[in-house]
Every structure is written in structure tokens, then in C-alpha cells.
């Protein structure tokens, strides 16, 4: 068992009528790793997650999840998965605790065991004090945490998280990340989608970058940055019309220049040096920022577009 991947996909395709949501992707997720799908909205991440979650049959391709065939053994696979869908599907007619209890029953777990389990999980996501409250008045972050607690009720072998922190405020996001990080430390296997590069960098051991239903790159966050970007980036903003990119060349130092609607990015190994050189030339800017390359830059390089539009 140790050698076989948790998820093994080759040439996976999902079509909705004429629309090709997933266009022939290959990937393997190993036991114990946190694997991410990074890409903008509409890249095919959610479709891929639904296929892996065995609630959407693939149109073509090979897929094994936990060494089983999703089409034939969907229910058996789902019994071993934990799912956090993009939109919370909490049961608004039940209380916080009841949501976990009944969800556990859907997995056929014994009522007696579930009492204790629910208490543990609520404690883990810091919702014990709200256990007997209805779900509706909870904040977005609390609902998200409850959904995560719910997905853990069956001690899943792998946790599928579709955009776990989209729509949350920064504080709530950090709380969710903190809990997911603990799960990782406990050895859980995570598969997540995100269009936030910081989320991908924080949580993923390995990720694939998706665009238009295809995988355009694969590796650890650091590998991807090394392979597809420079060490540093100089971000220039201009009050008036920006200069032509050619005017910004600093010999020998600039690897690549990207013009965005609101700013120009200069990719370089030595940002400070480039910034000084440009300043000495008398270039008039409204702001200059030197920063490290991120997955956002990787995505920009690979697709020519930004992640968040």
C-alpha cells in the first residue's frame, strides 16, 4: 500500500456539453502530503475536486482514488474522504453540534461514539461554546471551521478542500490556515484548490498550476519560483503614462519585464541594484517596490495573466 499514490490521474477529462472544464490532466497525490491546485476562477479546479470526490464522473481518462475506481466504488471511496466544498453546505435546520452528529451518521458511525467525536472536533475548531447554537448566525469564518470539523468526522484518509478560505476576512483566514497546518503536522493528507498564492505557499508541499483546464507547471512552491521566476521583482507605478519597457532595461541585470495595466514588473536577481540604476537615470515613478518573487509571478509568467482578476 505504501508505494501506491492516494490519487492517480492520467489524461483526466471533464466536459459539460461543449465546455471542456478539465482538459486531459495527469497528477499523483502521495500519502501524507499537502497537494494544491493553483489557478484562477474557471481553471477547472473545482471540477477536478468533484471528480476526485466521486460526485462527478470523469468524461475520459484514468483515475484511481485510494486504489479504487471512483465510477464503480464511489460510495466506498467517499466513506474514506473528508470534503470541504467551495460553498458551505451546512444544514441550517440543525445546530452546530447536530451538524456533526448527523454527518457522522451519514457515514454509518455509531451514535454513542459520535457524541465524544463531535465534542473533540468542535474543540479542535474552537467552536465548543457555540455547540448548541443554530448555524445561521455564525460568521463566515465559523461556518468554514464547522465545515472543516464536519469533514473530519469519519477520520478521512484524505481531506479535499475547495477554496478553503475564499471570502473570509484576513483574521478568519489565518485561523483556518492554523487549523489546517495542525492537521498537516498530524500527518493528514490534504488536497486543496486555491487562487491565493499565499495560501498555496503556506499550505502546499507540492502543487500544480492550472489554467484553462490544463496543468501548466508542477513542483513545490520554491521549485516553481526558482524555475519560472527570478529571485526578486521590482514593481514600478507611474503617475502619468508609463515609459516603454525597453527604456527600463538595465544591462545584464533584467531578466524579463511585464507590463500590467496599473504597474510594470521587472524580474531580476538583484532588485535594489536595478531600482538604484533606474533612479540614477532620473526615471519619474510614483512608487517603487522591491520584493521577492511569489507564485503570482510564476502564474503571470506561465499564462501572461494575473491569478486574481
Amino acid at each position: 500500500m505504501a508505494g501506491s499514490p492516494l490519487v492517480h490521474a492520467r489524461g483526466l477529462v471533464k466536459e459539460f456539453g461543449r465546455l471542456v472544464a478539465v482538459d486531459g490532466i495527469d497528477f499523483d497525490v502521495q500519502r501524507g502530503e499537502a497537494f494544491g491546485f493553483l489557478g484562477p476562477n474557471g481553471a477547472g479546479k473545482t471540477s477536478t475536486m468533484r471528480i476526485v470526490g466521486c460526485i462527478s464522473p470523469p468524461t475520459a481518462g484514468t483515475l484511481r482514488v485510494l486504489d479504487l475506481d471512483p465510477v464503480a466504488d464511489g460510495a466506498r471511496i467517499r466513506a474514506k474522504l473528508g470534503v470541504v466544498p467551495q460553498q458551505d453546505t451546512l444544514d441550517s435546520e440543525l445546530t452546530v453540534r447536530e451538524n456533526i452528529l448527523i454527518y457522522g451518521r451519514y457515514f454509518g458511525l455509531a451514535r454513542a461514539d459520535l457524541r465524544e467525536k463531535a465534542a473533540q472536533l468542535l474543540d479542535f475548531v474552537q467552536l465548543s461554546e457555540r455547540a448548541d447554537d443554530p448555524v445561521e448566525p455564525l460568521s463566515g469564518g465559523m461556518k468554514r471551521r464547522l465545515t472543516i470539523a464536519r469533514s473530519l468526522v469519519n477520520d478521512p484518509q484524505v481531506l479535499l478542500l475547495d477554496e478553503p478560505t475564499t471570502g473570509l476576512d484576513p483574521q478568519a483566514r489565518h485561523l483556518v490556515w492554523d487549523r489546517l497546518f495542525r492537521l498537516k503536522q498530524q500527518g493528514a493528507s490534504l488536497i486543496l484548490t486555491t487562487h491565493y498564492m499565499d495560501e498555496a505557499e503556506q499550505l502546499c508541499d507540492r502543487l500544480v498550476v492550472m489554467d484553462n483546464g490544463k496543468i501548466v507547471a508542477e513542483g513545490s512552491p520554491l521549485e516553481l519560483i526558482r524555475r519560472y521566476s527570478t529571485r526578486e521583482v521590482v514593481e514600478l507605478r507611474f503617475a502619468d503614462r508609463p515609459p516603454e519597457p525597453a527604456e527600463l532595461r538595465v544591462d545584464g541585470l533584467v531578466d524579463r519585464i511585464e507590463s500590467l495595466p496599473d504597474r510594470i514588473l521587472i524580474y531580476t536577481e538583484d532588485g535594489d541594484h536595478v531600482a538604484t540604476a533606474l533612479h540614477e537615470r532620473g526615471l519619474e515613478t510614483s512608487s517603487v517596490l522591491v520584493r521577492r518573487s511569489t507564485l503570482e509571478d510564476v502564474f503571470l509568467h506561465l499564462t501572461g495573466r494575473s491569478l486574481v482578476d
Binding site: R78, P85, T89, D91, G108
Partner: peptide, 14 residues
């Protein structure tokens, strides 16, 4: 509206 079944169908219940 409540999406109760979406949650249920991601478990072994069909």
C-alpha cells in the same frame, strides 16, 4: 436553497 443533499451526497449516502 439549503443544499442539504449536496452535503449528503459527498458521503457514502446516494
Amino acid at each position: 436553497y439549503a443544499k442539504v443533499y449536496d452535503a449528503i451526497l459527498s458521503t457514502p449516502v446516494g
